[in-house]
Design a protein around this nucleic acid. Sequence first.
DNA 1: AACTTAATATGACAATTGTCATATTCAATT
DNA 2: AATTGAATATGACAATTGTCATATTAAGTT
Lengths: 212, 212
Amino acid sequence: MDIIIVDDDALVSSSLKTIIESSDDCRVLATAGSGEEAVELYEANQPDILLMDIRMGQMSGLEAAEQILKTHPKAKILFLTTFADDEYIIRALKIGAKGYLLKQHYHSIIPALNAVYSGQNVFGEEITTKLPSVMSTNSNKKDFRDFGILDKEFEIISLVSKGLSNKEIAGELFLSEGTVRNYISVILEKLSLRDRTQLAIFYFNHLSDNKF
Amino acid sequence: MDIIIVDDDALVSSSLKTIIESSDDCRVLATAGSGEEAVELYEANQPDILLMDIRMGQMSGLEAAEQILKTHPKAKILFLTTFADDEYIIRALKIGAKGYLLKQHYHSIIPALNAVYSGQNVFGEEITTKLPSVMSTNSNKKDFRDFGILDKEFEIISLVSKGLSNKEIAGELFLSEGTVRNYISVILEKLSLRDRTQLAIFYFNHLSDNKF
DNA sequence: AACTTAATATGACAATTGTCATATTCAATT
DNA sequence: AATTGAATATGACAATTGTCATATTAAGTT
C-alpha cells in the first residue's frame, strides 16, 4: 500500500519512513513537512493512507485533513502525535480521520496501517480510556495520589462525587461539618478546582469507581 | 498469537477459525459457544486475544467481558457483531474492550487482530462515524427527555456538568443569572435531585451507565 | 383587540458552600 | 518533659446556590 508521511520534524518523518518500508507491502511515496505540502502531495499522489502529525507549523494536521477530505471523502488519514489530547481526538473523529496513534509505539505502526488499509479505524491504547463519557474499568486512586491527594481526602472526594452534602459527609465519616469543609477546601486547592461540582466531574473523568 | 473465538453460532465460529488460521501467526486455541464458557476458557488458556460476539444466549459477551476483565485487567477483548449499536459501543468502551468489529468484513479481521495484538484499539468503519455523536451531548437528549427535560434545560444541564457557575452559564447562553437559577431549580425538581453536583453526577451516570 | 402562553427577568430569602485564621487534642519524637 | 505535627474543630465571613412569588415581554391564537 502507498503511504505519504507528514511531519514538520524531518528526523521523525525519515525514521518513520524507515520503519514503514521495513514492511514488504508498504511503500512511502513521499514525505511532507507542512500541512500545505500535505494537501498538494495528496492531490498529486493519491496515496492509500496519509500518515500525519497533528501539531505542525502554521497549518495543523487537522486543518490539512479537513481540506483533503473535502475533495476526497474516501481519503484514509491517520494521525500520529506525541500526546493524547482530548480535543484532538474529538476533532479528528469529527473530521473523519481513520485513527489516531501515538508516536511512542513505533512497533505498532505497521499493524495499524494494515488495519486501516483494510477498512478499520485504529486508536492507540490510551485513547479509548480518554473518550469523554467513557471510563476505563480499572479503578485507581493512584491518579489522585499524583496530585498529592491523601487517603482521607480521597474518601471525601468519593463522597462528594456521590452527591452528599458536607453535613452528610460529616455524618458518614464522624467529622464535624467544618472539618469536611476544610478538607474540601484543601482538595480544591490541590486539584485547582473551584467547587464541589467541578470536583465530582473531575472524579468521573479520572475514575471509574462509580457504583451508586 | 493465540486467540479464542466465542460465538453461539457454531457455523460462524468455525468459519472465523478458518479465516484466522489462514494467517501464519494466528492460532485458535479454542472456540466457545456462550459467555460462561468464554470465561472458563479464558481462565484455562490465557489467550492473547478474545474475539467474542456480543449477543449470545443468556450471558452476553459484554457481561462475560466484564467478568474476565475484573480478574484480568490486561485482557484484550475484541467484539464482533452484526450491528453497530450505540448502546453497545458505549458499553464496550466503558468495559475496556480493545475494539469492536463488524462481522461483514471478513478480510479485515486479521489486520484488526494484529493491530490489537500490537496494542492498538480497533473499530470498524461504521463505528467511528458514530463515535462523535455518541460522545457529544446530543446522544443523551433522548434519555433526558424521558424525564420531561426540555432542550433549553438540557443545554443548561450540560453546562452545569462542565463545571460552570450560574453566572458563567448565563453569560454563555445570554440569559440573566436569575433565569439560570430558575431553570436549574426546575430541572432539579424534575429529576428529584437536590443540587447541581447531584445533577452533574446524574448526567455522567447517564452517559456511561447507559442502559444494560 | 383581547387572551394565552412561553421565555425571561427580578428581588427577597434561607441554606449551603468555600476560605481563612485560629484553636484544641493527641500521639510520636526528641 | 518538652516539642512537634498530624487530625480535627470553631467561628466569622463572603459568595454561591436553590426556592419562590411575582413581573415583563414577545409571540401566537381566538
